[in-house]
């Protein structure tokens, strides 16, 4: 009799236990969470693990906005019980660099620009145009526009006497 009870119990366990665990399987949840995240920008560098409906997200998100939106996006997936957010925010990309002309084209461009202003000498060194001599204020305004258009690192008028 006892044996029979045990057998019935085992049978019941076999049939009913999976049923108790209602809702989607972990593997399905993982697929859904991955899909939900990849639909949004900023989650390229994350990995997702699911155990008993508990989702753990690791890796790097692109920015703070992606981080703050992570919890709700994962929770919205059916079957998710809780979310462990272990992600970190990636360092922001370095700011854009100014485009500086190489010395050769810069020297040529500078020679063209100062040609019409006798009395002005310009030298180019490592992207910096250093000016010397004398120039009228009105002419200097024109010349500065031309020089800045050549993409120097700096237009240095320290040696220039503006009349």
């Amino acid at each position: 009799m006892k044996k029979l009870l045990v057998a019935v119990g085992l049978l019941a366990a076999t049939y009913y236990l999976p049923a108790c665990k209602s809702g989607p399987k972990d593997a399905d949840i993982k697929t859904e969470v991955q899909a939900a995240l990849s639909a949004q920008p900023g989650y390229m560098g994350v990995s997702v693990e699911v155990a008993d409906g508990v989702v753990t997200v690791d890796g790097e998100v692109a920015d703070p906005a992606a981080k703050s939106g992570l919890q709700s996006r994962v929770e919205s997936v059916k079957g998710v019980k809780s979310v462990k957010d272990n992600t970190s925010v990636a360092a922001p990309p370095p700011p854009a660099e100014p485009v500086i002309a190489a010395d050769d084209p810069l020297t040529k461009g500078v020679a063209d620009a100062v040609k019409d202003y006798p009395g002005v000498t310009a030298t180019v060194n490592d992207g910096v145009i250093a000016l010397s001599g004398e120039i009228k204020a009105a002419d200097w305004k024109k010349l500065k526009k031309s020089l800045d258009g050549l993409r120097p690192k700096k237009t240095d008028p320290a040696g220039l006497k503006i009349k």
Binding site: W140, K141, K144, D156, P157, I162
Partner: peptide, 20 residues
């Protein structure tokens, strides 16, 4: 824009702007 630049830094003497 160039007039404003000239107003903030008369005669562009500071050399701290490259405006293209």
């Amino acid at each position: 824009l160039w007039n404003l630049y000239d107003k903030i830094d008369p005669n562009f003497l500071a050399g701290d702007v490259v405006m293209n």
